[in-house]
């Protein structure tokens, strides 16, 4: 049992935001799954349920996913299933079980900036904008590059629909496992994207390699291999309980090359 001193059920985002600013230690409650894993007592918990943040709006050009949409609702949404061959749904389906995903939210999964995240890595394949209550729109990449905690409410994320082929690979011991490393590779409107997560650091794009790939005239199998090598040279991988750096390097090399081969259709 966790200890919550004060639980705030609010009627509006405005009120939620006000309380968030008022109390230094206030925490927003998304799905609450991660919050429960902590052992420290929580002084103020502000529930985001019932504020209308749980809808997915699809337009011709974009998908807007409310912060309180469950991971499972996102995974099974027809529009998400169509994006890039369904790689996002595939990635989401690998986060614990269905019952868990019915509770954990998109907002909590992004705001947690979890280094092991299986959502952030594939999301980096797309142009994603976070809609904050106070700060307004912010690019996902900007958000991830920021340090420190943002005292704001994420309302929704907007994914631009673009022609894209993508793959996601989670390397783990069982389906209920954290990623030892994860890799997403895509070709979006003719340009390559590569992201690596659970390095064990948080997911990042291999920007220099992506830029290099754009300069290669007619890529071959050797190009994919080289790209894999380059990713390992440019992205910081490390050692933790789950794997040694050298093994992560081997995995990243292999899956980047395979991913590029797959998405390029060669």
């Amino acid at each position: 049992m966790i200890h919550i001193e004060q639980y705030h059920k609010v009627d509006s985002l405005e009120e939620a935001y006000r309380l968030l600013q008022k109390y230094e230690t206030a925490v927003l409650l998304g799905g609450g799954a991660w919050i429960r894993t902590g052992s420290k007592p929580l002084e103020h918990v502000i529930d985001l349920k019932g504020l209308g943040l749980d809808t997915i709006i699809e337009t011709k050009d974009s998908l807007s996913i409310g912060a309180m949409v469950s991971l499972r609702a996102m995974e099974t949404h027809a529009g998400i299933r169509q994006l890039g061959g369904g790689f996002l749904s595939e990635a989401l389906s690998q986060i614990l079980g269905v019952a868990f995903r019915n509770t954990a939210t998109v907002g909590g999964s992004i705001m947690g900036k979890f280094s092991f995240s299986d959502l952030l890595t594939p999301l980096l394949m797309l142009d994603v904008t976070l809609q904050f209550y106070d700060a307004g729109p912010m690019r996902l990449t900007t958000f991830l590059a920021q340090r420190g905690r943002l005292k704001d409410i994420l309302q929704a994320i907007t994914i631009e629909k673009k022609a894209c082929r993508a793959m996601f690979k989670k390397v783990a011991n069982t389906a209920l496992d954290f990623s030892i490393v994860n890799v997403a590779v895509a070709i979006v409107e003719g340009r390559y994207r590569i992201a690596v997560g659970a390095r064990p650091g948080t997911a990042i794009l291999a920007e220099s390699v992506m830029a290099w790939l754009d300069t290669v005239e007619s890529p071959t199998e050797a190009t994919w291999k080289e790209a894999g090598e380059k990713v390992v040279e440019t992205i910081k991988l490390g050692t933790n309980q789950r794997a040694h750096e050298s093994y992560r390097q081997q995995l990243v090399k292999t899956y980047v090359a395979r991913g590029l081969k797959e998405v390029s259709g060669s």
């Binding site: 919550i4 639980y7 409650l29 799905g31 609450g32 799954a33 429960r36 894993t37 499972r72 614990l96 079980g97 269905v98 019952a99 868990f100 019915n102 509770t103 209920l176």
Partner: peptide
């Protein structure tokens, strides 16, 4: 949230009762 034996249905959807406040 890691074993599933506490599963209940919430509005007909399975959720983990240990995870839901």
């Amino acid at each position: 949230s890691t074993c599933g034996v506490c599963t209940v249905l919430m509005n007909q959807k399975p959720v983990l009762a240990c995870t839901v406040l």
